[in-house]
Design a protein around this nucleic acid. Sequence first.
DNA 1: CTGTAAGCGAGACGGTACGTCGAGTCTTCCG
DNA 2: CGGAAGACTCGACGTACCGTCTCGCTTACAG
Lengths: 201, 201, 201, 201
Amino acid sequence: MPTEGQADPTAGSGRRRDPRSHQAILDATLDLVEDVGYARLTIEGIAARAGVGKSTIYRWWSSKGALVIEALGEVLDPPPVPLTGDTRSELSGIVAQAMRLYSDETGARTIIAGLVADMHHDEDLRDALLDRFIRPRRAGNRVIVERAIARGDLPDGTDVELVIDRLVAPVSYRALVTWGEIGDDLPGALVDAVLAHPNVR
Amino acid sequence: MPTEGQADPTAGSGRRRDPRSHQAILDATLDLVEDVGYARLTIEGIAARAGVGKSTIYRWWSSKGALVIEALGEVLDPPPVPLTGDTRSELSGIVAQAMRLYSDETGARTIIAGLVADMHHDEDLRDALLDRFIRPRRAGNRVIVERAIARGDLPDGTDVELVIDRLVAPVSYRALVTWGEIGDDLPGALVDAVLAHPNVR
Amino acid sequence: MPTEGQADPTAGSGRRRDPRSHQAILDATLDLVEDVGYARLTIEGIAARAGVGKSTIYRWWSSKGALVIEALGEVLDPPPVPLTGDTRSELSGIVAQAMRLYSDETGARTIIAGLVADMHHDEDLRDALLDRFIRPRRAGNRVIVERAIARGDLPDGTDVELVIDRLVAPVSYRALVTWGEIGDDLPGALVDAVLAHPNVR
Amino acid sequence: MPTEGQADPTAGSGRRRDPRSHQAILDATLDLVEDVGYARLTIEGIAARAGVGKSTIYRWWSSKGALVIEALGEVLDPPPVPLTGDTRSELSGIVAQAMRLYSDETGARTIIAGLVADMHHDEDLRDALLDRFIRPRRAGNRVIVERAIARGDLPDGTDVELVIDRLVAPVSYRALVTWGEIGDDLPGALVDAVLAHPNVR
DNA sequence: CTGTAAGCGAGACGGTACGTCGAGTCTTCCG
DNA sequence: CGGAAGACTCGACGTACCGTCTCGCTTACAG
């Protein structure tokens, strides 16, 4: 299941993947997911909007989710946390990044909810999501936490993973599950807690 | 959309709801959701398994989600956190409760993911989920946190909601989103953090 | 299958048929068959319009057709052919009666088509139709033809049934099957033919 | 609504209609209409019997009636009236053709009744029936009557349409409506009448 | 005058079929 | 020979009615 369109250099003769179709499909996916949301998004609809046969989509993507991942990737890729050199503001940046990601205004919240549900019965999609979105973002956040340790603002032995989750999870949880308010005071509160009591393994 | 079967005292004349069908539908739903998961669960399948007409289901439930909520309610209702009188163990209980809820073994994790996704495009379902599951459980947890405040283990002015989320969200987040490990040391770590730095409004 | 409401003198105790419901059902049937036609007429719709339970309809009529027969009977009963004493005008009356019956304006044509179709797979309905409508009307027409014979305008031994059919069938055929024009010159033409060559057995 | 499968020379690309499905559907329709009659014939049943998806049927036919027309067409197409050169026998042939058509043994009578009823609330079906069956057969009969005129056996100015109806209508009427006997003496009697008194416009 | 046997409205029940939609696969033709 | 077009089988959707079946009530004869 190729989730990315990297051209295969060992490809035989014959016609190569048409980049115009590729782009049209991604564009159509974005358009449609914005219009109708993830749940009502259909391959058929994307094909029609893109002016493309359904089989062209199935040839290159294994599922609706895989297609959305690639389409969203271009638009919604991890807005990097600014490295200010100040631990407090960098950790706040982690929370802020999550808040932006789950923001209702971009419609991303609904899409994430859909992808998350689908990844529970589609292993390929799970791998794609983890590889493409979740792990890269965590890697970036890990760097920040490790800088804070190096700087001495967090103790050696800090459980980096847990610290990240303590910053990000409340945002995700309120956005996806409890429909709770996500106010501007949240980053400060979470960062305070982490700095006051970082978990040491 | 009646989600609960409380008898309507103002009921008119006419034949009453058949409790045997009602129960058969709930049982079939549980059976099937276990067998095939939430995503592949169909009204048609439930009706067939229950030996019931589809219309009997549609008459009483507005969606697959609403039906699952009621069916799961019987089995999965908030296992109450034991009130030991000890703040540390009671707060741990909150985390443990969440861990049990999202446990993979009951299959609940996948179901929750599906319900969560659906609640983002189905207002009725959202209300039902919040009323039936999310808010009651939070209410129970709120009591526990307030006991801790009363006991003096948490300061007056503690942001109760945030404390609950700091305990529960990491579990939910790892279970649903990051597919991360949820170890037995998690409750202790999270409770430590909360007690060491409870957020005060 | 009681098609008529004749009271059963051997009835036990208990409540008798409510004439108000009976009438309301017939009225509703007429209303509805006019609004939506025979094909889209439903028992459920009639019950709702009449403010009556479905079972009350099923208790007294065996089918949609039986009900329509009784309801239409009141409105559409054989408009008798005027007995003028003149053979030509009386025979013309037979044709004119048929033309009125199949007239598009009363909507009867569509209803008759529906009843005719149903009588081919519903023996009760067939009997009811024949008893209630077809045979009585034929009996009336037979009288007219026999008067013509008695008067000497048709020979002894005339095949009465065939003469009637030669007058009525073309109207029915054009109305139901060929969608052909049924002009005012038709009665004259058909009567001429019958008088010029009555079939003798 | 394509009722006939004539290949479209301007067809675009894409997969073409599968003739195996087409034939299977027509065969299943014939089988089933024979087994259960027109009224109990269902699209669902046909699809199942043909081993075909329902949508394949709906893609090519607009209604049960349209499908039956095409399916019957193959089996029941106008058995041509033999042109013997003898007016009396040719006109008799018209009646005999009708008698065969409405014959109970082929089951056609019930089917015709159903189609006739449906054509009263389905314009597409009406057009299809007229184009496919009624008008072609009439055209054939018109030729016969015109030959009789040319031969001098019927006068110039004969109302051809009315003559045809005088021959065919009694058969149709007795078969569909009055459930009357259709004996072997009927053609002779009707032809006699027509020849004795053909209507002149 | 009362008991009881219908009839009644309401409407839930198990079903069947509807016509539509989308999934994922397969075939045909065009550039 | 890749890709568009689009027909294919399949399965589920949510709706409409079917004819049957309780319900709890009214009604009106029989005793």
